[in-house]
Design a protein around this nucleic acid. Structure first.
Lengths: 231, 231
DNA sequence: ATGTCCAACTTGTCATATAAGCTGATGATA
DNA sequence: TATCATCAGCTTATATGACAAGTTGGACAT
């Protein structure tokens, strides 16, 4: 997997010229691994639509627009600027899906799921000093709701977005105050679910996402300013 | 890839007992291929979250709920009933995303894209006697709009749903009348886009999806009846 | 009954060889 | 000169045999 990471970095950085990716032999020599490993690496990149591989033909890098921007391997090496753009696009998606997921969940959620959500809120409020750990439980909370909505397609979509979510930590340096606010909003969502109130859950989720995004934008602006000052 | 298909079929059918998948050696013997091929097969299934593979441990089948139901390899072997459920869930997703995508596209669509859409409508109206070919252009039409909305995440999501869309052909046996209606609706969407009218595009897309789904449900019901009569 | 250790099994990697498919250049033909 | 068939040299695909590295369950000693 280290080979895949390095190769991805080289491709993302535009190091490899006009669509021609290194062949299996090139990779195995450059990274000092066997052809088997080089081959598997290329297959991984192919599954992410980063390259095309076919018998007899050289491996070619596919147009950037067709890459799988939800893959952690790719996100890892994207420039911060691109990640910022993607987070914006991710937010657009979440606004469209998550409020509705919350409403659907409210109609069919089980007591066990509610218990788990309650647990996670407790854990989050205990972790407000540790943003990374907080974020992890945060994701689990959102996925739990998604799962409760009982739609495998939507579940899969939200699931595949998880890595981009963690990449947001590269942008925002969530302050404890923001996390306290988030916990309060999670509680609101939770209470609407307990009441089996779809409209309430939808509204609470919408508020939560909107606030989240404001924080992200504010953080990004601060970063830009800091960067400008450093220049 | 044939090996992957066969193995997927066996796993989907529940043929393999309680989480224990065949090892690399089992596969290479059963299918008469080398260990290299068996290994790549398992890696593919692992990338779809169908199995877990780790050094030293046997390969295990993961819980069905965590499988990637958007993968063509998996969809291919799912029982018709499950595919029907998934199409329902897919519709839920499309209703949430596509009207908004159409609205976004209306705000930023280029003349070249409009030309391509116009082309595709022409092609579709010429293909109303050939449902399979029609469906292909249909997808291209929807993806074109998605691309025009300029959101890589949403684009990727709609793209990964394309295989499930083609699987709908296993359920619905679209009648020419339905296709004629679809062409009319596509034209409505197109005209709203030409007018750069987000609200109009959103409404037209919503109508289109709703009608599509009605057709799907009606077809499913007919099939159920036919099946009952056969019994 | 309990804990330690190891043998058997499994996946990960390597090296070498051969099959199968593509591409561009060479050269024959009109 | 222009066009087309052919083929050498690349590439990926697969096979085989060997060893490294990690896991597991049971034998064994305590």
């Amino acid at each position: 997997m280290q080979v895949a990471a390095h190769l991805t970095r080289r491709i993302v950085s535009g190091d490899i010229e006009d669509g021609r990716a290194p062949s299996e032999l090139d990779i195995s020599q450059e990274f000092g691994v066997s052809r088997v490993v080089a081959r598997e690496t290329l297959k991984i990149l192919a599954s992410l639509d980063i390259v095309d591989v076919a018998q007899g033909r050289r491996v070619v890098v596919r147009p950037r627009a067709e890459w799988d921007y939800l893959s952690p391997l790719l996100i890892e090496w994207l420039p911060t600027e691109t990640v910022g753009e993607l987070l914006q696009e991710l937010h657009q998606m979440r606004v469209l899906l998550e409020p509705e997921l919350a409403a659907m969940a409210a109609a069919s959620i089980t007591d066990e799921t509610l218990d788990r959500l309650s647990d996670e809120i407790d854990r989050m409020s205990a972790l407000e000093a540790d943003p990374d750990a907080y974020l992890e439980v945060d994701h689990e909370f959102h996925m739990e709701i998604c799962r409760a909505a009982d739609n495998r397609i939507l579940d899969r979509i939200m699931y595949s977005a998880r890595w981009l979510g963690t990449a947001s930590r590269r942008i925002t340096n969530e302050a404890p105050a923001g996390l306290r606010r988030a916990t309060a909003e999670h509680t609101e969502i939770y209470e609407a679910l307990v009441a089996r109130d779809p409209a309430g859950a939808r509204a609470a989720m919408r508020r939560h996402l909107s606030n989240n995004y404001s924080t992200l934008l504010a953080e990004k602006e601060q970063q830009t300013k800091r960067a400008a000052r450093r220049r």
